[in-house]
């Protein structure tokens, strides 16, 4: 399966860009652009979990929102169910949204505090005109049960629930219209460690039960390794590496991914003592003014002249039929 052979792909993302204009002065003239997402091409296959990782500001959340058209992309195509989402009208888009939903990061901010749980979970059904009032009520109770909440909670308000329970409500809402594709934007980062595992296990169960496809956005690489089938690593608006989970973690090709992996602490003092840390210097540059050539070059320890001048191509270095996409001039030396 190659990136360009789109037939088997469930969702095809081509050259996706999202730039936010920087406006200055009385006339609000555009003086520049924050290149939050700058030319992403990848596929998401049916039934898989694609993990999207990167540090804050790398554009991973913007990518998720641009795929769902919650943010209008500046350029590029997103094909989902034979429809080019970027070309759809408002009404058509609303119809398509029935099949693609989102789970948000902050379970405290993403639920309306004045609505009951029943209304929150039932709202998508109303918007899409699914069933009558009685059916909807039944469906809401089913959904609550599905995510492990008591169906009698329908008349309660969000503040009566803990963080983990609220995230379950958010998941129930996302599942209400029976979608095939869900973008989960850091669904567990706001939760305590012991509750994170509960929510991740729930998402895993629902995936196999309902045949879902996930785009799982996170910054926690150990959780991403656990939940994903394939992993994409983003840096400053670009995907720098994309491959099967085990390929990425064991045969890492991009220096940024290597540094990211090396920065993750392992809960084992003996391994920690033996570990050779690769510590990145400096901070992530501003996406309004990205470095020339390879965007990672100012922080990279393998940097050469070509990296400063030429933008590396995103190419497939996979062997034995496996895909391994990487954007680095020197990736061959890590094989």
């Amino acid at each position: 399966m190659s990136q360009e052979n789109g037939n088997s792909a469930f969702i095809q993302v081509r050259n996706l860009k999202k730039h936010f204009p920087i406006l200055r002065g009385v006339l609000r003239r555009q003086v520049g652009a924050v290149q939050a997402v700058d030319g992403l091409t990848f596929n998401i296959y049916k039934g898989e979990t694609l993990g999207l990782v990167g540090e804050s500001g790398c554009g991973k959340s913007t990518t998720g929102r641009a795929i769902l058209q919650l943010l209008k992309p500046t350029d590029g195509q997103v094909v989902f169910k034979d429809q080019e989402l970027t070309k759809l009208s408002g009404g058509e888009l609303r119809k398509a949204r029935r099949h693609m939903q989102m789970i948000f990061q902050d379970p405290y901010a993403s639920l309306n505090p004045r609505m009951t749980v029943g209304n929150i979970v039932g709202e998508p059904l109303e918007i899409h005109n699914i069933g009558n009032a009685k059916n909807r009520r039944k469906r809401v109770q089913e959904l609550l049960k599905l995510v492990g909440l008591n169906p009698y909670f329908v008349n309660r308000y969000p503040h009566e629930f803990s963080g983990g329970q609220r995230q379950r409500i958010g998941i129930a809402r996302a599942l209400a219209t029976n979608p095939d594709f869900i973008v989960a934007d850091e669904p567990i980062s706001a939760l305590d460690v012991s509750i994170q595992a509960q929510v991740v296990n729930l998402m895993d169960d629902l995936k196999s039960e309902l045949g879902l496809t996930y785009l799982f956005i996170a910054h926690d690489l150990s959780m991403v390794r656990y939940i994903s089938d394939r992993v994409a690593v983003m840096y400053l608006g670009r995907i720098v590496e994309l491959s099967d989970r085990d390929q990425i973690f064991e045969y890492t090709l991009h220096p940024y991914t290597q540094a990211l992996l090396s920065a993750i602490p392992i809960p084992d003092p003996e391994k920690e003592e033996k570990r050779q840390r690769l510590i990145l210097e400096g901070d992530v540059p501003s996406p309004a003014n990205p470095p020339s050539g390879c965007r990672f070059h100012p922080r990279c320890s393998y940097v050469t002249d070509i990296c400063r001048e030429e933008d590396p191509e995103f190419r497939d270095l996979g062997r034995n039929g496996a895909e391994h996409w990487v954007a680095c001039h020197h990736a061959e030396q890590f094989i």
Binding site: Q196, L221, L261
Partner: peptide
């Protein structure tokens, strides 16, 4: 429970996470 509910970055075969049931 805390140690078992964390996925380990360096382990290839990951079994289901053992979550701690209930709430604090």
């Amino acid at each position: 429970g805390l140690l078992h509910s964390m996925p380990k970055l360096d382990e290839k075969d990951q079994t289901r996470l053992a979550s701690i049931a209930g709430l604090p």
